[in-house]
Design a protein around this nucleic acid. Sequence first.
DNA 1: AATGAATGAGACTTCATTCAT
DNA 2: CATGAATGAAGTCTCATTCAT
Lengths: 187, 187, 187, 187
Amino acid sequence: MSKREDIMNATLDLIDEEGLQSVTFAKILKRAKVGSGTVFNYFHNKEDLVNEVYRDARMHMGQCLLLGYNSELSLYERFKCLQLNRLKFAITFPKEFRFIDSYSYSPYISTELRMLDDPSSSREVVMSLIIEGQKQGMIKEMDAQLCHSVIHGIITAIVKGYYVQKYPLSEQQVQQTLESSWKAILV
Amino acid sequence: MSKREDIMNATLDLIDEEGLQSVTFAKILKRAKVGSGTVFNYFHNKEDLVNEVYRDARMHMGQCLLLGYNSELSLYERFKCLQLNRLKFAITFPKEFRFIDSYSYSPYISTELRMLDDPSSSREVVMSLIIEGQKQGMIKEMDAQLCHSVIHGIITAIVKGYYVQKYPLSEQQVQQTLESSWKAILV
Amino acid sequence: MSKREDIMNATLDLIDEEGLQSVTFAKILKRAKVGSGTVFNYFHNKEDLVNEVYRDARMHMGQCLLLGYNSELSLYERFKCLQLNRLKFAITFPKEFRFIDSYSYSPYISTELRMLDDPSSSREVVMSLIIEGQKQGMIKEMDAQLCHSVIHGIITAIVKGYYVQKYPLSEQQVQQTLESSWKAILV
Amino acid sequence: MSKREDIMNATLDLIDEEGLQSVTFAKILKRAKVGSGTVFNYFHNKEDLVNEVYRDARMHMGQCLLLGYNSELSLYERFKCLQLNRLKFAITFPKEFRFIDSYSYSPYISTELRMLDDPSSSREVVMSLIIEGQKQGMIKEMDAQLCHSVIHGIITAIVKGYYVQKYPLSEQQVQQTLESSWKAILV
DNA sequence: AATGAATGAGACTTCATTCAT
DNA sequence: CATGAATGAAGTCTCATTCAT
């Protein structure tokens, strides 16, 4: 693994463990096992490093959200695919998910990066799915953005509870969660 | 207003504006218009100050969440009351809400404080309401904590979208949100 | 003596001894006997500190250059006064003089400061004296700025030779220098 | 052109543009278009590189100062030749001249190098010319070194004014400058 | 109680230099 | 010879905290 990756991994780990505010170069260097100068051969400064880590996490999530998405499937199946992908991503890559969730609106993250759209723009996919459902009369006639917030918010809250071990997430509970989020926006 | 309050208000303002990580004493002192030594007459150190601000915010939210709660009302009305109270609090006191939402799991906030239960323990009220609904066969038989996460998550996501002006929150949209969260947990 | 003065004196000393480029805060702090933070209560950064030292030196020199200047005196006597004042300043305050001479065109010194005119603008006094002499037919008809460079250059070169002990500057040699510079610009 | 020369030229350019203190290897490497290791094949370290550049400049100036010098000519003509050579060198090779003038007494330049005598020792030529003139009763009886400082100082001051465009140096003004410096040391 | 000058640990960053390729 | 990734000593500067007034 390259030094650059070592540094980025160490940074993500530390952000997750101690919070962005308490991540120092000294800690990063020690964990990544590189000399202090090395970081600056790859990143212009600390903010740049953090932003690169953020960009990577966003790109990664963007890819995962659309895994196995098949526009031929029924509305409900597509909905479940997208919601499940998000849930799985959050569970499989908790550090990435938490970092994105916690710091997207931190002043440390540049505005342009925050606005970053996923590679294949999963956000757009979800939005158009909602609108399609509304046209079909299945999904409630409410602001599509609001709708999006509702279903996204459920997943986010669920995984956060899972992280702090308020409950496990068995197969059954995952299904219940998906159903809940589906029912929340039905007419 | 006392110096102590000046300091705490300035601190909350700055946390909301710039993020906890970039709040320095220098900025607090300037905004609160006090000398640097004064802070240490009221707070042991910076962590202590932040935790006091956090405690205040939590206490305040705890009070607001149960405003007008009447255990005589129907299950649905009680549910709406609690959800609406949370939504109103978030809209009326955005700085408090965001601070609590963003930093509850920051290492800066002491564990005991994070666990803090509201004065009249609104959390318990919500939980028992869920369990009561499940006994009556109205609310879906899923982990009560999970259920709680779902309805809480919807409110949180909605107000965050509102903060960044993805949509306004008209009376109608508020009602739609409450309905959504209710339907999300119905059998 | 105030800490601020301690710091400025230490800085001037070190610049003179080791050159601007090798002056570090560590050296300044040690010599001025102050803590590292103290400097930054008085100066915004290193460049600011150096510029303040430069400003002081320029102000000081400006005052010295016009000491005892009497516009009633004869042209030659006024000329000698000005030249002698510069020579004396250079001899009495070698650190200030060398600093000004060496670093006026260093990028470290801000442009505005470099352009700084002496309090009572000794430069203007010299220039008008030259022009007056030209009108009287005593001083050679050459560009007044060029004339000024000539007489200033002689003093500068002389004191630099004196600094490196190429020769002492006895009373007689001072007089010879003044005469030389006078003759250099006579018709 | 060899890499070695590329490096030395880049170094001189940068010293002139930004000052010795802010010249870094990174800048040199970029401008000279060589890898970082390459420098160390030619120069032991940074100080060594700078000293080599200085030596070259001094050697070059030494050669130029005696161009066309003819010991058969009259005292005044020889004087003018030497002074004019210095003036021309300064105008033709401003980077070399400024480097020598500014940093001869910098601690970066080794003492031995600073003392360096020109190949054909122009300094000695000027000095003996002065002494010869004094024996003939043409040049004022003052310390020969002082005398040397006077005429050298005039040229230095003139070209510095020219560099910052205080005035152009027309043929006439060059002649006036030479005359001035001659008159400055006449009896 | 209120102040703010002084402090120093520790943060970020630069840069000359090395060394394996 | 030529390269440039890696290095770490040393630099500048920040900031929470102390303490005499």
